[in-house]
Amino acid sequence: SDYEVNVNGIHHRFHNISEELIKFIEEALRRGEDLREIIKKVRELLG
């Protein structure tokens, strides 16, 4: 049904976003950045 496609589409989009965010955060932590600064950047990215 349309509803299922829609829900799956939304889930898929969020899954991709969270994968990208996790990579972004892991790389920043590897560079020794402060978690609070990383979260601030993530918030800015998400608008």
Rank of each mutant, 00 (worst) to 15 (best):
S1L: 15
S1Y: 13
S1G: 08
S1E: 09
S1M: 14
S1K: 14
D2Y: 09
D2W: 08
D2L: 03
D2S: 05
D2E: 06
D2K: 01
D2A: 04
D2V: 05
Y3W: 08
Y3L: 05
Y3D: 00
Y3G: 00
Y3F: 10
Y3P: 01
E4D: 10
E4F: 03
E4V: 08
E4S: 04
E4A: 03
V5S: 01
V5I: 12
V5L: 05
V5D: 01
V5P: 01
N6L: 07
N6V: 12
N6W: 05
V7K: 05
V7P: 01
V7G: 04
V7D: 03
V7Y: 05
N8K: 06
N8D: 09
N8T: 02
N8R: 04
N8H: 07
N8Q: 07
N8C: 07
G9S: 03
G9H: 02
G9E: 04
G9A: 01
G9Y: 00
G9M: 02
I10F: 11
I10E: 13
I10C: 06
I10M: 14
I10L: 09
I10V: 10
I10T: 12
I10Q: 13
H11N: 11
H11I: 14
H11K: 14
H11Q: 09
H11V: 14
H12D: 03
H12Y: 13
H12F: 09
H12G: 03
H12V: 13
R13W: 15
R13I: 15
R13H: 15
R13T: 14
R13S: 13
R13L: 15
F14L: 01
F14C: 00
F14Q: 00
F14P: 01
F14E: 00
F14K: 00
F14H: 00
F14S: 00
F14G: 00
F14W: 15
F14R: 00
H15K: 14
H15L: 09
H15Y: 10
H15R: 13
N16S: 06
N16W: 06
N16D: 07
N16K: 04
N16M: 08
I17Y: 01
I17H: 01
I17T: 03
I17L: 08
I17S: 02
I17D: 00
S18C: 02
S18A: 04
S18D: 06
S18R: 08
S18G: 07
S18P: 07
S18K: 06
E19T: 09
E19V: 14
E19P: 11
E19K: 12
E19N: 11
E19Y: 14
E19L: 13
E19A: 09
E19F: 15
E19M: 08
E20Y: 14
E20H: 08
E20L: 08
E20T: 11
E20G: 09
E20M: 08
E20V: 08
L21R: 02
L21S: 07
L21I: 09
L21T: 13
L21C: 06
L21K: 04
I22L: 04
I22K: 07
I22W: 09
I22S: 02
I22E: 02
I22A: 04
I22Q: 04
I22D: 00
I22F: 06
I22R: 08
K23M: 11
K23R: 12
K23D: 08
K23T: 07
K23N: 10
F24D: 04
F24A: 06
F24I: 08
F24M: 09
F24L: 08
F24H: 07
F24P: 01
I25N: 00
I25T: 01
I25H: 00
I25E: 00
I25Q: 00
I25V: 07
I25G: 00
I25W: 01
I25A: 02
E26Y: 10
E26Q: 14
E26K: 14
E26T: 14
E26W: 11
E26C: 07
E27P: 01
E27R: 14
E27H: 14
E27G: 12
E27S: 14
E27M: 15
A28I: 05
A28M: 13
A28D: 06
A28K: 09
A28Y: 14
L29I: 12
L29Y: 06
L29G: 03
L29W: 07
R30M: 13
R30C: 04
R30Y: 15
R30G: 09
R30H: 14
R30D: 08
R30F: 14
R30I: 08
R31G: 06
R31Y: 08
R31D: 06
R31C: 03
G32H: 12
G32M: 07
G32N: 11
G32K: 08
G32A: 11
G32W: 07
G32R: 04
E33F: 15
E33Y: 14
E33R: 13
D34M: 10
D34F: 12
D34E: 08
D34I: 07
D34Q: 10
D34H: 09
D34W: 13
D34K: 07
D34L: 10
L35Y: 02
L35H: 03
L35W: 05
L35K: 02
L35N: 02
L35T: 06
R36F: 12
R36N: 12
R36G: 10
R36V: 08
R36A: 11
E37H: 13
E37T: 11
E37F: 15
E37G: 09
E37S: 13
E37C: 07
E37Q: 12
I38G: 00
I38C: 02
I38F: 04
I38L: 10
I38W: 05
I38T: 05
I38Y: 03
I38H: 02
I39A: 05
I39C: 03
I39R: 03
I39M: 05
K40V: 13
K40P: 05
K40E: 12
K40G: 08
K40L: 15
K40Q: 10
K40H: 09
K40D: 11
K40R: 14
K40C: 02
K41M: 14
K41F: 15
V42R: 02
V42P: 00
V42M: 06
V42K: 01
V42H: 03
V42C: 02
V42L: 07
V42D: 00
V42E: 01
R43V: 08
R43L: 10
R43T: 14
R43H: 14
R43W: 11
R43M: 10
R43I: 07
E44A: 12
E44C: 12
E44K: 12
E44H: 11
E44F: 15
L45E: 05
L45P: 05
L45M: 10
L45R: 07
L45C: 03
L46K: 12
L46S: 12
L46T: 14
L46F: 08
L46Q: 14
L46V: 14
L46W: 13
G47Y: 10
G47C: 05
G47N: 09
G47L: 15
G47I: 13
